[in-house]
Amino acid sequence: METLATAEHIREHLKLVLDPELGVNIVDLGLIYRIDVSDGDVAIRMTLTTPGCPLHDTIVGGVRRALEGKKDIKGVKVELVWEPRWSPEMMTEAAKAQLNA
């Protein structure tokens, strides 16, 4: 039986977390740098669009809420990093189209 705690499944859950200012999900914005899964423990390395973002707690809390309590996920650790620095080139084409609409 396939476990739900894979990087791809987690990425899909994280698409439900929106940047409140931009209204685009954090995956398509390119804010998720790495997802590691080990025995149900999930470690996420991510960034924000700007250092000192006032919505830091909202977005990181959204990541935790999107994953905690899901089948096969025991714990969630979110590491916020500033290198590499985020840039608009990290967005998917879908995010770019959404922001240009």
Rank of each mutant, 00 (worst) to 15 (best):
P51A: 14
E21H: 13
D19A: 08
C53N: 10
A95D: 05
V60E: 10
P20I: 07
A94E: 15
T50D: 02
G52W: 10
V78M: 06
G69I: 04
E21Q: 13
A66I: 03
D19L: 08
D36E: 15
V78T: 12
T92F: 02
G52M: 10
P54W: 09
L48P: 03
L29G: 05
R45N: 04
L99H: 05
V76T: 06
E89Y: 01
A5C: 09
E83D: 14
E93L: 11
D72V: 01
K70G: 02
G75T: 13
L29S: 07
I44D: 04
E21L: 11
S87I: 06
W86A: 02
L80K: 12
G75C: 00
A7N: 07
D36Y: 01
A97G: 00
E2G: 00
A43T: 12
G61S: 12
V76G: 05
A94N: 11
R64K: 15
I10L: 00
I73Q: 01
I32T: 05
V27N: 02
E12K: 15
I26Y: 08
A5P: 02
G69E: 13
W82Q: 08
P51R: 14
D19H: 11
G61I: 03
D57N: 13
L48Q: 03
L22I: 13
H9C: 08
A94L: 13
L22T: 13
P88M: 06
L14P: 06
P84N: 10
L22Y: 12
C53D: 12
E21F: 10
L16Q: 14
I73S: 04
D57C: 00
A7S: 14
E2C: 00
